[in-house]
Amino acid sequence: MTMRDPYSERQTTFVTPEQVRLQLRTAGLGSRAIAHLIDALLLLAASALVVFGTAGSIYLLSSSWFPNDGYDYLFAGMFLLLIVMNVGYFIVMEAYRGGQTFGKKAMGLRVLQASGQSATILPVVIRNLFRLLDFLPMGYFAGSTAIFFSRADKRFGDMVAGTIVVAEATAEQRKRRARIDKRIARLQAKGLLLPDLAGELGEPERALLDERDWQLLSGWAERLDPKPPVGAQGLEQRIWLHFTEKLGHSRAAYPDSRPYLAALYLAVREDWEL
């Protein structure tokens, strides 16, 4: 499974007061960059709205685009609003909305303290002030380099504030699940008929499947491809052979490997996922 590729493995561990060891995966450069891009676009849109709103109201009030005087306060207010908005957005969202800006939420990321607790206002303020430093010399070069070399994917702001950005396994799984569902639905629309396996699989059959079988099956589902490369077709066949043999299904009843495996995946998925 891609989730546990050794090279993307960057974990941080802490122990809860209940003496349970929790492992969190820190978020890498890519997902964080995308999250920031989303946030930046949102802020850009909001800023444009403020600027055009101000310009529009000035035009309505004075029926001229560039009045000579009398609108200082509007301008100053706009100026301050823009700054407060662009700085405050990250701080307020990260401190009071569970460590997630909209972009981070979309990517399934969360800001936590390095101790595993929710980030409080001070660390959040610090890590966001340090954006200035991480941005240097341009485009978050310093921050990206720091993330690249840091053991827990920390940019400078994270190092000073003692925070980490973690990738939530649940969000990742939900996304993968939706992707697989979409693929199977697309195949069904193209005429793939799924046999009804859910009713047929009883308790004893389900118990026959073990951890490795599930990994095999979900790995297959993840790589489900409408036009598989030539080599992969034989593999699909072999997986089909494996499961029909293990579950004692007659191969004549389920002659096609793909619909059989898809139905099997959908039938047993709930047993393995949360």
Partner: peptide
């Protein structure tokens, strides 16, 4: 190594953050 352990860990960590 199971996926369930990973996902449950995620759930427990979020609950832990909420509780503490």
């Amino acid at each position: 190594a199971s996926e369930a352990a990973l996902l449950l860990g995620d759930l427990v960590s979020r609950a832990h953050n909420q509780l503490y």
